[in-house]
């Protein structure tokens, strides 16, 4: 009985906080936009009984999904988001891995402090941290002033309102999500394994590629998911730091919802986004499962 309850808890959690909201979003995505409160049609009228439910279902259709294919804006935005998320994830990994590696190889008494430093930015509001990048990256901002003072450049660089600023914002914001799982992984890594690899003829570098990297694979994958998934739907960072030409699905979603007041299309955009995100995760898990079974 107690076991049953323990198994049920995560499922109930999932049902209450994911499945039910998702079903509602799917339902809205199958509706039509209407000038009403709430602004879509049909509404489920339970007072009409069985007939009401039947009419309700007969009114639902996939029109909004077909609509998404009629305008190249949507797939371009999805693609552009995927690209931005992928590049940001790669950059975050490139920067985060050495940091995690450095932390894991630091003296144990230093590690707690270093960990603290990584987590510290979370104590400030995310929004304020992104806003402060405006002050750093703008034409008359800290970075340009500094570079001009150094004499590296003689014209201020245009960074703010470009895709570069978006990358900076995403990498900065999500870096801890990359560092922490990799660090957790590397910290457990037995130093003797590296010595063993060197003993067996590896240089420092090849020991890193042949032993450290494969053994931190699960941390790398976890970190990449933690960065890639929120980055793909990111709205705040491209809005604040990106230029008007930065096309991201989060912004499109916002416009559909707020400017067009088209909740059904907005929901369709969200459903497609979820599918785009969930499919690779499921494929990956399947693959992991297979590997695990194969090695049994």
């Amino acid at each position: 009985m107690r076991r049953l309850v323990l198994i049920l808890v995560p499922y109930l959690w999932l049902i209450a906080l994911f499945l039910i909201p998702f079903v509602i979003v799917v339902k809205i995505s199958l509706s039509d936009v209407a000038l009403a409160r709430p602004p879509y049609f049909p509404q489920l009228d339970l007072t009409a009984g069985w007939a009401g439910i039947r009419t309700f279902f007969s009114e639902l259709d996939f029109e909004n999904f077909t609509f998404l294919t009629t305008d190249d804006l949507y797939w371009k935005a999805y693609l552009s988001s995927l690209k931005i998320a992928a590049i940001s994830t790669a950059l975050t990994l490139l920067i985060g891995y050495p940091i995690a590696y450095g932390m894991a190889s630091a003296r144990p008494e230093w590690r707690a402090t270093l960990m603290m430093l990584v987590i510290l930015p979370f104590w400030t509001s995310f929004l304020i941290r992104v806003y402060s990048w405006i002050g750093i990256l703008s034409q008359g901002g800290l970075l340009n002033t500094f570079l001009l003072w150094l004499g590296v450049i003689d014209q201020p660089l245009t960074i703010l309102n470009t895709e570069i600023a978006v990358y900076i914002g995403i990498v900065y914001t999500y870096l801890p999500f990359m560092i922490l799982p990799i660090y957790a992984n590397l910290e457990k890594l037995d130093g003797a394994l590296i010595e063993a690899a060197e003993d067996l003829g590896c240089s420092r570098t090849s020991a890193f590629w042949l032993v450290t990297i494969p053994l931190s694979k699960s941390g790398i994958i976890a970190g990449c998911f933690l960065v890639f998934i929120p980055a793909i739907g990111e709205f705040v960072i491209p809005s604040l730091l990106g230029g008007s030409q930065t096309l991201m699905i989060g912004k499109v979603l916002y416009e559909e919802f707020f400017s067009n007041r088209d909740w059904p299309v907005a929901s369709a955009v969200a459903v497609v986004l979820l599918v785009i995100l969930i499919v690779p995760i499921i494929l990956f898990q399947r693959n992991e499962q297979k590997n695990r079974e194969a090695s049994q």
Binding site: Q245, V252, S259, N260
Partner: peptide, 15 residues
């Protein structure tokens, strides 16, 4: 409104 928003996106992003 949809045409308008789309037009605006095009003006802003060129897409």
């Amino acid at each position: 409104q949809r045409t308008l928003t789309r037009l605006w996106t095009k003006v802003k992003s060129g897409t």
